[in-house]
Amino acid sequence: MTKLAIAIDLHRCIGCNTCALACKMQNNVPDGMLWNRVLTENCDIYDGAEGIYPNLTRTYLPLACQHCENAACQRVCPTGATYKDDKGRIEIDYDKCIGCRMCMAACPYNARVFNWNEPVRSTGFNYGDARVPVRHKGVMEKCTLCKERTDAGEEPRCVQCCPTDARIFGDLDDPNSEISVAIREHGGYVLLEEKGTKPQVHYFES
């Protein structure tokens, strides 16, 4: 089996948002939403800090679909539009999505975004990878783990563009893959482990 995944080194994440915009570009993500966003964890201002000056800490947390092994979104989708594919990615078949947003309510990570309106792009044209299908109003979308790129053996765009090499992409089912080795070496954690969703996106601090 193949279980494609991403591991993110939070120590190397400088909160630059390059991954967020790279994803937006690659996937033709319309205005008003992002598939991949970066949070300053537990702060209400970006680049904020936890604690009281000068005893401060800060974590930049890039957040997108966690491609859970036990995906809540997939379970609740009434039409099977959200599915786990043979490479271990959670994908959406836009033609099957009826826009009920059950998956959105079910996702503990707020990873999904919905086309509430007909998508608008301030460029006036569709940018990004030509292989990425265009979505219309009324369908759910989210990180596909760059399906079109990873199917062709390329890295996801966020991984390719990360200026600090904080992201590792690979197959969790291959014990010798860079990602498996990194997770073994650094330990790390998954988000909301207690929910039992078994995310395939891992976070660690080198």
Partner: peptide
Amino acid sequence: EPNISGANGITLGTQAAQQ
């Protein structure tokens, strides 16, 4: 309250957000 909180938060996806 989102389970994972932090700024800038969640992208709204609304018309106002598009603008």
